[in-house]
Design a protein around this nucleic acid. Sequence first.
DNA 1: ACCTGAACACCGTTCAAGT
DNA 2: ACCTGAACACCGTTCAAGT
Lengths: 211, 211
Amino acid sequence: MPAASDRILKPRKTPRQARSEATVEAIFDATIQVLLAEGAARLTTTRVAERAGVSVGTMYQYFPNKQALLHAVLKRHLDGLIDKVEKACRALAGETIAVISDGLVAAYLQAKMDSFDTARALYAVGAELDLGSLQAANSKRVGEAVMAVLTSALDVRFEDVRVVAFTLHVTVAGAVGAVLERGGSRARAKILASELPIMCRAYLTAVAKRK
Amino acid sequence: MPAASDRILKPRKTPRQARSEATVEAIFDATIQVLLAEGAARLTTTRVAERAGVSVGTMYQYFPNKQALLHAVLKRHLDGLIDKVEKACRALAGETIAVISDGLVAAYLQAKMDSFDTARALYAVGAELDLGSLQAANSKRVGEAVMAVLTSALDVRFEDVRVVAFTLHVTVAGAVGAVLERGGSRARAKILASELPIMCRAYLTAVAKRK
DNA sequence: ACCTGAACACCGTTCAAGT
DNA sequence: ACCTGAACACCGTTCAAGT
């Protein structure tokens, strides 16, 4: 039988939607904090829940399992990257292939470097989840956007834009990923920043046909 | 007090060294088998030991922990790759840059494809261990070999071979890794096989100076 | 000497019991 | 209705007890 004090002690009902959003946000933040502060090996559902200020049980209301949590956190990060790349693609439409190439590489590197620590931390858990499907969706969205800019190039056209866009994406993403995975110093990131534009421009020029 | 039957039932002492090697080999094989058959999530020390026909305790005599085991298995795989790439480098010494470029890319792709399933399976556990240090060592050895062939090129020389070799390695390895990570169909591997040579040759030509 | 496998600490996940 | 956290199954690792 509920005592009268219950009415006072219990928090008033907060708007369901807003509360949920805040909780999810707190869990996301907690995940990255634990990852950065304690490492992938100590990234525990209990620890994340504790840091986020909720019980494990509550966390499992929002995410059915640990993998789903990591998936969501990584998706959030990748979506942010994709947004930036898409924006860059739209801004580069109708330029020459040289400008497009440099702009794309710069945008991609910039986006990755903006969230260097987070990106590195997330790469460390990447293999624990179905990174495959996420990256596939990622590839698709970035692929569409890149195909669009390449097609819009002022001075050239491509035999098979799909293949070219795929190659470009997988090479740049792969190189950056490789550097991030292996301890990724910022020095090495700088080498990429100077060499990738040359490589991409050279590749695009090699496979392009004059318009 | 040992009974007389012990002398009969106990296996005779097998040469220490040879026995160890066989056991370690069995554990390596068991690891990859469990990985391919049951997936990374079910890759368990107990399961590996069982499959290898030893007790967990025995396995811990050879490998101080699970990470060390995975590290060793991955190292074994990467060393195999490096050997092939180094061999290719030696064979390509003194050729023109075009031949060297195509030869290098072909050798790298070939080596990866030879062990496609193993490579894919290992990528799935890559993040669980200090892949970083392994890849760093890997990078170094491959870097040396690639620098050597590039320097030996008949027709051109490079301002900074170290940077060029690094870029080449990280791009090709990254692209292949990216494709393997995301479910890597062989169809996509084929696109790489046709595009990477073009890209690498274009890059090398762009940064090379006539001799 | 060397191997075994029960035991321990800890993790992901669930769900009865609270409020 | 919603949250909690003890409880459960399972994992990595150890080490007393066997042979």
